[in-house]
Design a protein around this nucleic acid. Structure first.
Lengths: 249, 249
DNA sequence: CAGGTTCTTGCGTTTTTTTGCGGGAATTAT
DNA sequence: ATAATTCCCGCAAAAAAACGCAAGAACCTG
């Protein structure tokens, strides 16, 4: 096998699997590891792949998985935010949890919107301060450093005293069997209270989190009124949720 | 699984759920905890996540945007903050109001200090999040856009339920005749509640605000235990306060 | 075609990377 | 306070990479 052939083979393999191991390659092609290593080095120098200890990764892999974190799924979340905005009417009383999706929603609020937002999420509070016509009601109690959200019995109690028109929930995991689930006990308590205190519940999530689940349940699917994802509402992935009676946007 | 793959997996997981536990990761991936820990360390060094005891947190919404640094008399306020720090003991429960002087105090807290800080000031909450060993208790209620402080009967009620060891008050005006005074009705209510809920009250202020007064009284001089200014405690301006029984630092 | 040059490849050795493990320190939970 | 985790450090083994070298193939050139 010629050098060129070999390198083409490697690239082809890389497009299929996004990764190759030097060990596998040298067995399959029947050359020494040094040769493979030199091939990988050359291809790496030419910018066709990313050499790592033990083999190589495709450029696609690195772009997708190692994209700058602060823009991870940001575009998706902006789409979700814009769609969810339609649900907010002037003068509404809105409850929100935390999370980057919710934060994106708040950052996309129209400047002239008049509403009351009740939340225990510190980033959301920070974002809300910028809006002159929005009344912010802070949920007080112990601040969870992980989620940057106030949690605890006091928080639950304060939430249970209100009657919100709408509740936006950042979603950690959502599937048909377990409903809306999360991994932090205290956060689950707060979210539960929010669901019970609201006329309508809106779940906002990137599609990637659909059909996954976490250890603790916030609520069953029946309590969820709207599901907002970045996908087209007709996407087949969303079909089961529509069938379950959820309005998918 | 290659090292890079593993790290990509961790980052991906982190972006989905905002938090990962080393224990979970090493089970799922099938490597030792040390390996996971080293991965987390490397990713942390690269600034791609925040390592914490037991796992890691997503970088997504820990964008620490520092409030304006061009605060009036910042140097003076830093001196005041350093002096006031001496009053805080390990394990204390501390109440604080808002204001740039208080904020300066929080920013000068020692990293290893263990304490509980209860406050309704959004900037103070933001600053406190950075300290891993500080428990933050948020006072909830309506957020006043002017003072970035929660105010209202609920806030007052929550404050009145605690017994704090120390209360730091940002000071708007202080004089012999009217005591501690302020100009915002709702803020005054909150501050009153804080004074009543604390064993010791600390007023922090630049000397410029001494011997001035505002329309509404928070409390009389008798309730104030400590006065912290940028001046030397022996300064003659501070004499009357010492004579009134206040410990001047 | 002879002779020299360049390229490619494999081998042995050295160096680096990665990983797991044990024990003690530190931190957290009970 | 005490117990249980988790973390940190150094070590050692295994795997992989880098390096120099030399044999052979391919390629040019006169």
């Amino acid at each position: 096998m010629l050098k060129r052939e070999r390198q083409a083979f490697i690239l082809h393999r890389l497009n299929l699997h996004n990764k190759v191991l030097s060990v596998d390659l040298c067995k399959e092609i029947g050359v020494s590891e040094d040769t493979i290593r030199r091939d990988l080095q050359e291809l790496s120098d030419a910018g066709r792949l990313i050499k790592v200890h033990g083999g190589a990764l495709s450029m696609a892999f690195s772009e997708v998985k190692f994209a700058p974190l602060n823009v991870y799924s940001r575009a998706h979340k902006a789409i979700i935010a814009k769609k969810a905005l339609r649900l907010i009417e002037d003068g509404m009383f809105v409850l929100t949890s935390g999370g980057t999706t919710i934060l994106e929603l708040v950052r996309n609020l129209p400047m002239n919107l008049r509403a009351t937002i009740m939340t225990g999420s510190v980033p959301v509070i920070n974002a809300c301060i910028a809006y002159p016509k929005i009344d912010v009601v802070v949920v007080g109690d112990k601040l969870s450093k992980d989620s940057k959200l106030t949690v605890g019995v006091d928080a639950v109690e304060q939430i249970s005293r209100v009657n919100a028109g709408l509740c936006f929930l950042g979603t950690n995991a959502l599937d048909m069997e377990h409903g809306l689930t999360d991994n932090d006990r205290e956060v689950v308590q707060v979210k539960k209270a929010m669901v019970n205190a609201s006329a309508k519940v809106v779940c906002m999530t990137i599609a990637e989190k659909l059909q996954t689940y976490q250890p603790m349940q916030v609520c069953g699917l029946k309590k969820i009124n709207y599901l907002v994802t970045e996908l087209d509402p007709n996407d087949r992935i969303l079909r089961p949720f529509i069938d379950a009676g959820i309005t998918v946007i």
